[in-house]
Simulated assay, not measured.
Amino acid sequence: MSESALSEMDDHPIHQIAEVIRHVGTSDRNFYDRYYFNCHGPDGDPWLIIGLGVYPNLGVADCFAVVRHGDDHIVVRSSRALGADRNDLTIGPFRVEILEGLRTLRVSLSPGHGDLSFDLTFDADGPAVLEPRHFQRQLERVTFDTMRFVQTGRWSGSLTVDGRESEVEPDGWRGNRDRSWGVRPVGEAEPPGRRAASTDATSFFWIYSVMRFADYAIVVLVQELRTGERIMGDARLVWNDSRRDPEWLGRVEHDIEFVPGGREPAGATLRFIKPGGVTTSVRCESQVANYIGFGTGYGLEQDWRHGMWQGDEKTQGMRNDVSELDPTMRMFCPIDYYATFAYDDGETVDTGEGLFEFAVIGPHDQYGFTEYLDVAPDR
């Protein structure tokens, strides 16, 4: 083993396999390790989303920030060759710093690379909570095998959009962050082969919502096939007080109200049903959409995908008018909404805010989508 394969992380007793830290326990090209953050002011505008990913078997690290501000969709993205030092979370003008694990992190984007820059610190409201493992197999091949934890919190620092700097104060600026790792499709697209013949394999119904209330958060996750068969389904109430255990809310049922002429949700009602029929519910109202598929690497552009080799280092800035984003392409990637919520536990109704991430790609029987380009009818 070459000495150059070592990094300072190898001096810590954290190894999981008989390899150095920089070598993961699988040769699957799709292994990744990722940070996600969102940040919003009191009314959801600006609505900022940041992601940083490491792809050990592709030899790449990349990062993006995308902000929705009025009708502006502004992106800065950067990629570099992945080195040996896994502590180095600097990618071009981006940097993530872990100030206190599972508690406080700092994210920054230096000025001069587009119409966006920031220096922000995230402080958690409560504990980070593991979600159920995400596992999916298609034609014998494991396509998803991931773990993720999530955490709500408040932000402080500064955010500059279009030359206008905002002082970010923790009383008014909120959001959530997550960490995920494992196997999911990344990098240059692979030939679909036989999978292309199966609409069940390519249909994707997805709800991922992180709702922040005064004393707790609710985390909901649903993935379905076109028939409604569940790949994943979970709803948890997570107390800010770490001495209290998270509570399972029940089986999730959904009722989405679509904007006519597309597949974007105007609102949704989620019901949580426990054995015996005890039901609670949350009303979700979409407020501000961040079209994270455009420019950030989630797959809409074939020249920039998460984990794709862009050379030793590359940084780009771009912007679009939201009103001019291709409405058909909007249907082929999840959209992250700043949303408001009303949770009814049968005795009281609490109001909150946060993330409502949604996609229905391909056919889905419950909502009458039989073809990929079907849209919701006029009401």
Rank of each mutant, 00 (worst) to 15 (best):
P192V: 06
Y35N: 03
V220I: 03
R164Y: 05
L6F: 15
D72M: 06
V76A: 05
M1Y: 11
R148P: 02
D350R: 09
G311W: 05
S209N: 10
V150C: 12
N87V: 00
A376M: 05
N38L: 01
I50F: 14
K314V: 14
V220C: 08
A18F: 10
S242I: 02
M308A: 15
D71I: 03
G233P: 05
A196V: 04
R103M: 07
T227F: 10
V288Q: 11
E357H: 12
M308Q: 15
T269A: 05
G83E: 08
F213I: 11
E247I: 13
V107R: 06
S79N: 11
D115L: 09
E131H: 12
I14Q: 09
D245H: 09
G295V: 06
F358K: 14
F258T: 03
P93D: 01
S27C: 02
P377D: 15
E100S: 15
A289Q: 10
M211A: 13
G307H: 10
V150I: 10
S2C: 04
G112V: 04
S7I: 06
H69K: 07
Q302Y: 13
R330L: 01
A339G: 01
F294Y: 04
Y291P: 00
E247L: 13
I292S: 07
R137C: 04
E8S: 13
V54G: 03
L270C: 09
R226G: 07
H306A: 14
D215L: 02
Q16K: 15
D62W: 12
F144D: 14
G297L: 08
G153C: 09
M147N: 09
L139V: 03
D10W: 03
S158T: 15
G261V: 06
T26R: 07
S180P: 07
F358A: 06
A128G: 14
G182M: 07
D365V: 10
A339Q: 02
N38Y: 00
L58V: 06
R154Y: 14
G92V: 07
E140C: 11
V360T: 13
F204D: 02
P111T: 04
P185C: 08
C63S: 10
G228V: 10
G262M: 08
N30S: 11
Y291R: 01
D43T: 15
L225R: 14
E165I: 09
T340E: 14
N320Y: 09
Q136F: 03
E229F: 15
Q310V: 09
P377S: 11
I50Q: 01
F37Q: 00
G193R: 01
S158R: 13
